[in-house]
């Protein structure tokens, strides 16, 4: 045994990257799939500046050529900042116009990476906890039947907890499922304050810098029709283009809103009624 060390067996002493294997990086290119967050965090001391738009209905009653197929309308506009505090913690804040439900949303988020998928499959998935808080700063209305009446200040708040569970199956294919829980402090009397939702999303890279992306979140609710509005679930399809510094998402979705506190409980626009829209997400990361 002793003599074997003198030969080429030095290699046998070297590890294959340790018991834990190597962390798989770049499950997704950026912190969103389309509407939902992805398991990607911002690197420490880096700032992700994000701009997103959702335009008006392409077809249907409010679409067509007279709104240039929706691009003359902006149903939601979002500006977000996400900062990498540590390797496994990202903090974010932002504001969105609010496409339905409440308007004028100021939001904050905390992303915490619990597990990283490893190259030797000892850890087969990446697991991220994501918590959001959203505050609507819109003017309150006098009609107490509306959720924007805000009898108390706390009625402006809603919270979302999500577990992001993703696996990078290969360099080109990644899939994520996203169990979500949302609590709104004030809802319509036919509605429930707390709802569960389950998201699924993925990416298929067609080339090094180009890929297809899609996500869907199913919202579980007893009353689908509330106050004469029929609610549905948001589905988004799009393409991802990376230019080296920026990541662009060009997408189509029935969701009018950008923030989870809005698109999870309040999506009522339907593909079958032509109520789908063009939208984009742009991400640019800066070193601070």
């Amino acid at each position: 045994m002793a003599t074997s060390f003198a030969q080429d067996d030095l290699d046998a002493l070297l590890s294959d990257g340790g018991e834990e294997g190597q962390n798989i990086s770049s499950t997704f290119k950026t912190s969103r799939i389309i509407n939902t967050h992805s398991t990607e965090l911002v690197k420490p001391r880096h700032l992700d500046f994000r701009v997103a738009h959702r335009f008006g209905d392409i077809a249907g009653v409010s679409g067509g050529y007279q709104t240039m197929f929706g691009v003359d309308n902006a149903s939601d506009i979002g500006i977000n900042f996400e900062y990498g505090l540590m390797e496994n913690i990202t903090l974010g804040f932002g504001r969105t116009k609010g496409g339905n439900g409440l308007k004028n949303i100021a939001s904050s988020l905390l992303k915490f990476k619990l597990l990283s998928q490893s190259s030797n499959n000892k850890i087969p998935i990446s697991l991220v906890f994501l918590g959001h808080a959203a505050f609507s700063y819109m003017a309150s209305t006098d009609d107490l039947a509306l959720i924007s009446s805000f009898p108390k200040l706390s009625h402006r708040l809603s919270y979302i907890s999500q577990m992001l569970i993703a696996r990078k199956f290969s360099n080109s294919f990644s899939l994520q499922i996203t169990p979500s829980y949302i609590h709104r402090n004030l809802v319509h009397f036919e509605d429930k304050n707390s709802l569960f939702a389950l998201g699924i999303g993925g990416r298929l890279k067609l080339s090094k810098r180009f890929g297809l992306i899609a996500d869907y979140v199913h919202v579980f609710r007893k009353n689908v029709i509330i106050d004469n509005t029929e609610y549905t679930s948001p589905l988004a399809l799009g393409i991802e283009i990376e230019t080296g510094g920026h990541v662009f998402h060009l997408n189509f979705t029935n969701s009018r809103s950008l923030h989870e506190s809005q698109y999870l409980p309040y999506t009522s626009s339907k593909y079958s009624d032509g109520q789908y829209r063009f939208g984009f997400n742009i991400s640019r990361v800066f070193v601070l």
Partner: peptide
């Protein structure tokens, strides 16, 4: 005799992309 074996995936960059 000197042997090295370094996993390529272990290299960390400032920038995720």
């Amino acid at each position: 005799k000197l042997n090295f074996k370094i996993p390529i995936l272990s290299f960390r960059f400032e920038n995720g992309l």
